[in-house]
Amino acid sequence: MSAIIEYAPLLWQGLMTTILVAVLSGALCLIVAFSMGLARLSRYWIIRWPAGVFVEIFRGTSLIVQMFWFFYALPFFGIQLHPLTAAVLALGLNEGAYAAEVVRGAISSRAKGQNEAGIALGMSPALRLRRILIPQSIPAMLPPFGNVMVDLLKNTSLVSLVTVTDLTFRAQMIRSSTGETAAVFLTILVMYFLLSVLLAMLTQWLEKRYALDRRALAVQRKVLRQESLKDKAGAL
C-alpha cells in the first residue's frame, strides 16, 4: 500500500486524463446520438440510409478495432491523429451509435399521436420536433443515456492501447515499477466504481429535476387555463 501512496500523483494525473477523455467523448456521443437518431427518422432516404449504415458499422464492429483504425491504420492514408484525438473519436462515435438508437426509439414511441396534434395546430415538422417530440421524449432518453455514459466511462480504460496515459496506463506503469499488482488494480477499480456511481447519481438527479420542471409547468398551465375560463365566464 505504501507504493500506492508514493505513486498517488501519477494516479491522479491518470484520473484527470480519464475524466478528460470521458467528457470529450461524452460530448461527441451526444452530438452523434441526436444527429444520427434524428437522421434515421427522416422521410428522405438520402439522409436515412447513410445514418443507418453509420450506426450499424459502429455498433457491429469492435471498439478496440475502431480505435486501432483511427490511430494505427489512418497514417497509411496520410492521416496522423494525436492519441487523445483517436481515442475520443473512437469512443464518441461508437457510443454515439448506440445512443442514436435511444433517441430514435424514444421519439418514435411518441411520434404518431404528437405529430397529428402538431399538424392540427399548424406546426412545421421542425417546430413539432423542437417544441413537442424532443421535450416529451427526454424522460424516456435519460435512463438509457445514463447507461451509455457509464459504459463509455468504463471503456476509457481501453485508450491506453493507443498510448493515452489514462488511469489504466498509469496503473500499468506503477505495477511494472513496484510489482504491486493487486493493490494497484484494486485502487483503480475503486476509482472507476466511484466515477460510475457519480454518473448514475447525476442521471437520477436529472430525471428528478426534469420531472419536477414538467410538474411545475403542468401546474402553471392549469392555473392559466382556469384563469382564462374565469375571464371568459366574467365576460359573459
Rank of each mutant, 00 (worst) to 15 (best):
L81P: 01
H82T: 13
P83W: 08
P83H: 11
P83T: 06
L84Q: 09
L84E: 05
L84G: 10
T85D: 02
T85Y: 05
A86E: 03
A86W: 04
A86S: 15
A86I: 04
A86R: 11
A86K: 11
A86H: 07
A87S: 13
A87V: 02
A87H: 03
V88W: 01
V88S: 06
V88T: 14
V88E: 03
L89D: 05
L89N: 08
L89R: 12
A90G: 14
L91M: 12
L91Q: 02
L91G: 07
L91N: 03
G92L: 05
G92Q: 07
G92E: 08
G92S: 09
N94L: 02
E95I: 00
E95M: 14
G96S: 11
A97I: 04
A97Q: 07
Y98Q: 07
A100I: 09
A100L: 10
A100F: 02
E101W: 09
E101H: 08
V102S: 09
V102A: 12
V102P: 01
V102Q: 04
V103W: 01
V103L: 09
R104A: 00
R104H: 01
G105P: 03
A106V: 13
A106C: 12
A106D: 03
A106P: 06
A106I: 12
I107E: 00
I107C: 02
I107Q: 00
I107W: 01
S108T: 14
S108H: 11
S109Q: 13
S109W: 08
S109N: 14
R110N: 07
A111N: 10
A111D: 06
A111F: 14
K112A: 14
K112M: 10
K112S: 15
G113E: 06
G113I: 09
Q114T: 13
Q114R: 08
E116P: 01
E116D: 14
A117R: 00
A117S: 14
G118T: 03
I119C: 11
I119V: 14
A120R: 02
A120F: 07
